[in-house]
């Protein structure tokens, strides 16, 4: 006798979000650096900020920090970096 199973998985198709177009140059751009508040993140991003400005001609850097690495970024943080041309997120220790 054929067996019928009830699908136990999440069947909702994930909503695809296409990646933003790549930047041809960093010259004159605004780059947001998002620190997720893990130890050492600021040290790494300080160096990245310096290199972006010195070597790649980035004109403006927005520095933002999540209040905790344990949860998604709150709307306020996302709002502050929304206008940037690119975002670099320092993910872990």
């Amino acid at each position: 006798m054929p067996t019928t199973l009830v699908n136990p998985m999440n069947e909702r198709a994930p909503q695809a979000a296409p990646a933003a177009p790549r930047l041809a140059t960093l010259q004159g751009k605004t780059v947001a650096l998002l620190d997720i508040s893990k130890p050492g993140g600021s040290v790494f991003l300080d160096r990245v900020e310096l290199l972006l400005k010195q070597r790649y001609g980035v004109t403006s850097v927005i520095r933002e920090m999540k209040p905790t690495f344990a949860k998604p970024a709150p709307a306020g943080v996302i709002e502050k970096i929304r206008g940037a041309d690119a975002v670099i997120e320092a993910l872990a220790d």
Binding site: T3, T4, L5, V6, E11
Partner: peptide, 30 residues
């Protein structure tokens, strides 16, 4: 939830392993 019809030749336990990907055997959710 959608229904999944197994062929007579399908072992339900092996099917669940292949389709649902859990490392331990599961009771087929008939």
């Amino acid at each position: 939830a959608s229904s999944i019809q197994l062929a007579d030749s399908d072992d339900p336990y092996e099917y669940c392993y292949r389709a649902f990907g859990d490392a331990l055997p599961v009771v087929p959710p008939t």
